[in-house]
Simulated scan of single mutants.
Amino acid sequence: MKRKAVRSRSTIRRKPRKKGSLFSGKLLRFSIIGFLIFLFLGIGYHYRNGLLYYLGFKSYKLKYEQAEAKRISDVRNYQVLENHQGKAIGIDVSEFQGKIDWTLVENIENDYPLEFVFIRATAGNDREDRQFTTNWIGAKKSKMIRGAYHYYRPNENSLEQAKLFIKSVQLRKGDLPPVLDIEKLPKGQSIDSLKVGLKRWLKAIETHYKVKPIIYTSEKYYDDFLKEEFSNYLFWIANYNFYREKIGEDWLFWQFTEKASVSGIKGNVDVNIYNGDVEQLRFITIE
């Protein structure tokens, strides 16, 4: 009987592992994973604004939308100002701008010099603007051509409103004519009744100051209610729409934005263009 040959353990040779190939494989995997992580983070950072917006971070959405609106507004402001080279540029302010440092109020967007300012004096039949006196004096010291306006409340007595403005505002030589700011429609009364009240205010102011007032309103309000019956007055029109690129031929002033930056004033400011140069602007001031 033949015995099976028993292979000695010492004769069994195992093929040694290649340490280099194992290390190279791990290194390759780590390199790929690292690259993918780096790529993911890079893409995330590049598109961080959009990701934060669409992932629903409400506070960021608000901040992002405000920044985008400001950027678009700034572009339009420059375009409009460039389209009106040579025209006199000004602002209008009220207590809503807070305390203004008039020593710094010189230009808009750090490029365009400011020549005039309209300052809110009164509102309705009982409201004096808290910053009117300070702003009125500050504008004079800054050698800006200044004017005062009254915010008209349709449901309050027009003559009482005129009386309050006259009591609050003393116009001097070189000041702009007084302004009636009408923006709201009346409640519980007709448009005809509103027009009667506006005419009474305008007449009372003209009688006192011996100069024809200016009317401020939006373009739509002007077209719908005032254009025909008040055609013997000069108008200051508000229109912030992108389709409007130049001042209307029959407009005395155009308020083209409510979102501009002016040195010396915190927050946004309304900006206006006069339909002429600064010398022509001086021509319409009180003598």
Rank of each mutant, 00 (worst) to 15 (best):
K167I: 02
L27F: 14
D101S: 10
L55D: 10
N275E: 10
G188D: 09
V93W: 09
V80S: 00
K227V: 00
Y64H: 15
W136Q: 07
G50H: 10
D92W: 11
A69K: 14
T103V: 10
S31R: 13
K87F: 11
K199F: 12
M144E: 05
L194W: 06
P113Q: 07
E279Q: 14
Y60M: 05
G20D: 07
E287L: 10
I166P: 03
A67F: 06
N110I: 02
K266Q: 11
A162D: 00
S24C: 12
K18W: 05
L185V: 04
L36T: 12
R71W: 10
G174S: 03
T133N: 15
N125A: 07
K187V: 15
R76G: 05
L198Q: 01
D175I: 03
G248P: 01
Y243Q: 09
Y112W: 12
K63Y: 06
K15V: 15
K70Y: 08
D74I: 09
S261I: 14
L62R: 14
W136R: 02
L28Q: 09
S261R: 14
L52G: 10
G86M: 02
L226Q: 04
E106W: 05
Q79G: 05
L114V: 14
L41H: 05
A260E: 00
T103P: 12
R48W: 09
S168L: 02
W136K: 04
I273H: 08
F225W: 11
K184A: 13
T257Q: 08
K167W: 07
A260V: 01
Y243P: 00
R76P: 03
Y112C: 03
S193D: 12
L281C: 12
F116E: 01
G248Y: 05
R9F: 15
K70W: 06
E65I: 13
W136E: 07
G138M: 03
S21I: 15
V105M: 12
K19M: 14
D74C: 09
